[in-house]
Design a protein around this nucleic acid. Structure first.
Lengths: 151, 151
DNA sequence: CTGCAATAGTTGTGCATACAACTATTTCAA
DNA sequence: TTGAAATAGTTGTATGCACAACTATTGCAG
């Protein structure tokens, strides 16, 4: 891996450091996503599905209504419905119609879903290796810059 | 906008600064992508299509074979074929079968495509505004950190 | 030469996203 | 009390990506 210009074989220089940063963030995001997708592939879940499972573990043993799953997702999305349905078919989550408010669908991670996350956690080291290019202090600074950018 | 923990309503702290940085990069990328998609929508092109057009302008007036478009894309993808076909239907690019190597398809941006890019460039300020949260020095540091992370 | 490997691109399937239109349920104000 | 607005979720369509299987063409070793 090399600088972002080399990566995307851009002969012309970027117009500004800001523009370059925007492309760099998106390119690095795609790079991370693909590493993660490959890692999860052996467990037959996608990064999106994995993300939903982690969100549900965060609230376990309390269920989360669908809307609360959506607003916690990294990729602000619409379709939690279809993602959750995929996970339900694999037995990783349960759907329950809420008694007190019948518009609402509560989603709960199952034991099988929790077991999957545990298994994946145990191999997390190889994933963390991909982030080893920067020090902890640099990661801290990176987080500060990204948070500031969005503010 | 606020820190990444608040954004995704995560009650539990991240396990490490590195893990947090990974999520932060992907979340910020998604944020940027959505702003960009909204901006381009009035011109009826997607960010991916826009990216391909810029790549072709970079080599104009020389065409690029399809494979060279692919390897310059930010999102390392397969499907330049289908993206280019969408652009061709809108009249923004031309496809030409290469005489000397008949496996090869040369792609060339049209005048209409160049005009579209010029028009979009002229409204680029609103896009740059989204990056104004950080200074130029911070953008430089951000680029350094991202390049280092991938190395 | 001949046929196998490498190259260039195309296409099918599954997954995911954005957006918009839709149903069902609940709330609340006139 | 009733009907419009708000809330919660579902579904259809277009777009795009990853992967794998496929066609067509070219190059090269024997």
């Amino acid at each position: 891996m090399a600088s972002i210009e080399v990566e995307i074989k851009q002969n012309k220089k970027f117009e500004s450091e800001h523009q370059k940063a925007a492309v760099n963030i998106m390119f690095t995001s795609s790079w991370l996503y693909n590493i993660n997708a490959t890692r999860l592939k052996k467990h037959a879940v996608t990064p999106e599905q994995f993300n939903v499972l982690r969100i549900l573990r965060g609230s376990y043993p309390k269920p989360l209504m669908l809307g609360n799953v959506t607003c916690r997702m990294v990729d602000k999305s619409s379709n939690a419905t279809r993602l959750v349905e995929k996970l339900r078919q694999k037995g990783y989550v349960k759907r329950e119609l809420c008694e007190t408010n019948r518009r609402q669908v509560d989603i709960l991670i199952t034991d099988k879903g929790l077991a999957l996350l545990t298994k994946i956690d145990n191999e997390a080291e190889e994933w963390l290796d991909t982030m080893k290019g920067i020090t902890k202090a640099e990661a801290l600074e990176l987080n500060r810059l990204l948070d500031k950018l969005r503010s």
